[in-house]
């Protein structure tokens, strides 16, 4: 009885084929998935490219800003140096003028 019953189970569970064209439907689904993943990759590549361009632009702007600041500092330093030199020269001139004026006055008689 048990063997009969198990045989009945085997008979009831005979393998069944899917409907005609199953393999083609699977291949179509694979092709669809591949094209979807290709689209996804393209989209990601575009986003990555745009992000890279933006990054380079921001970095460039930042570098440009830094360079400008450095140039400004350099110009300021040069200006300060020039002012210092001018000051020194003015000092020398002032002292020379002072020295001249403190000498006894020459009346031009020659005696």
């Amino acid at each position: 009885m048990s063997k009969d019953f198990e045989q009945q189970l085997r008979d009831a569970l005979q393998p069944v084929d899917p409907e005609e064209g199953f393999d083609q439907r699977v291949m179509a689904r694979i092709a669809q998935e591949r094209s979807r993943s290709r689209t996804k990759i393209t989209r990601w590549a575009s986003v990555a490219l745009a992000a890279s361009v933006l990054f380079v632009a921001v970095l460039g702007a930042h570098q440009w800003q830094l360079r400008r600041e450095q140039e400004g500092l350099e110009a300021r330093k040069q200006l300060i140096e020039a002012l210092r030199l001018t000051g020194e020269k003015l000092d020398v001139a002032y002292q020379a003028v002072n020295r001249e004026s403190s000498l006894p006055a020459d009346d031009g008689s020659g005696a």
Binding site: L13, P15, V16, P18, F22, M27, I30
Partner: peptide, 22 residues
């Protein structure tokens, strides 16, 4: 080779489909 994969599908579709169906 997609033709080889399709042949694999044909070879084992009965097993997989029958399990899914039961």
């Amino acid at each position: 080779e997609s033709s080889a994969f399709a042949a694999l599908v044909r070879r084992y579709q009965r097993t997989v489909y029958s399990i899914a169906l039961r």
